[in-house]
């Protein structure tokens, strides 16, 4: 305990790095949100709550919220259903299962830019021939297209987490249920689903909160288009800085966005934790 003071010095480098990259920008962001800064000039004026009031009158933001929610909910649902399904199938031991796993995991290695480029090509040159139109090129289907790219590039981590969760469920439970005459669906419903609780908490919360922040794939695939039909909140904020010259307003939106995300993240974790079953 004599050395207790010595420990404090171990924190100093991390505090400096944290202050520089997160804390200081965070505080200065609070300031910017109350100004009319355009993102370019040195000067700005305080406009009190104008930016926040404007949010309620802005139809573009309603559109951005719709697009964000549509993508986030659609992606989270599909990702979790598909990754759980694949995790169950990949849980069996058979020849070639290692290679199959790798095939589902390896797109995680590629950047959002590469994923969007390759799928953009497939969409324009191959899928459009089958479907009659390009998914990414039409406002009514662009989100479906982005969900497909995001699933391809991001499903691996959820498969990994579900596989780890599944392997923790004792095999005897299934054997006992089988002796009692429970069919595959009943075993899934009464053993797998409840005992997979912690994995659901992690996967659903993480998928949803990261989907709400989605930026790179959409930016690379469509840039928010066509006609703003895929302009999610994150892209809306970016455009306010670099295209619309309304950085102050963009930052106000960013703050509200952050608060909603944090409340949602904490709320979801609490909700799922309360539903978990002790093993």
């Amino acid at each position: 305990m004599k050395n207790a003071k010595g420990y404090f010095w171990f924190l100093v480098p991390s505090i400096v790095l944290f202050a520089f990259t997160v804390a200081v920008p965070f505080v200065s962001g609070l300031n910017i949100a109350f100004t009319d800064w355009d993102g370019i000039s040195k000067e700005y004026h305080y406009v009190f709550l104008d930016n926040f009031i404007r949010m309620f009158q802005d139809s573009n933001i309603v559109q951005a919220i719709k697009v964000t929610l549509l993508f986030a909910i659609g992606y989270t649902a599909l990702n979790n259903i598909l990754s759980l399904f694949l995790a169950i199938l990949l849980g069996d031991k058979f020849r070639g299962v290692g290679i199959l796993k790798t095939i589902f995991f390896v797109p995680m290695a590629l950047s959002a830019v590469l994923a969007a480029f390759v799928w953009g090509f497939i969409d324009r040159k191959i899928l459009s021939g089958i479907l009659g139109k390009s998914l990414l090129g039409s406002p009514s289907t662009v989100i479906i297209g982005i969900i497909i790219i995001a699933l391809w590039s991001g499903i691996g981590s959820n498969i990994m987490i579900y596989m780890a969760g599944l392997s923790n469920i004792p095999q005897d439970y299934y054997e006992a249920a089988q002796i009692d005459g429970a069919n595959a669906w009943k075993r899934f419903q009464y053993i797998t689903l409840p005992l997979l609780g912690p994995s659901f908490t992690t996967c659903i919360t993480l998928t949803l909160t990261s989907a709400l922040r989605e930026f790179g794939i959409t930016m690379s695939a469509t840039g928010g288009g066509p006609a703003r039909s895929s302009e999610m909140i994150s892209i809306f904020i970016y455009n306010n800085l670099f295209s619309y010259q309304k950085a102050g307003y963009g930052q106000a939106v960013a703050l509200v966005f952050m608060i909603i995300l944090m409340v949602l993240g904490i709320g979801l974790t609490r909700f799922f934790r309360s539903k978990e079953v002790e093993m």
Binding site: T21, V22, V24, P25, F26, S28, G29, I32, W37, G39, T209, L212, R213, F215, I233, S234, I237, Y238, N240, L241, A247, G250, Q251, A254, L255, F257, M258, L261, M262, G265, I266
Partner: peptide, 14 residues
Amino acid sequence: MVPFQSLMIPIYRM
């Protein structure tokens, strides 16, 4: 839990 989008504008400025 802070999304990068909330730091984007202040970081650019800084």
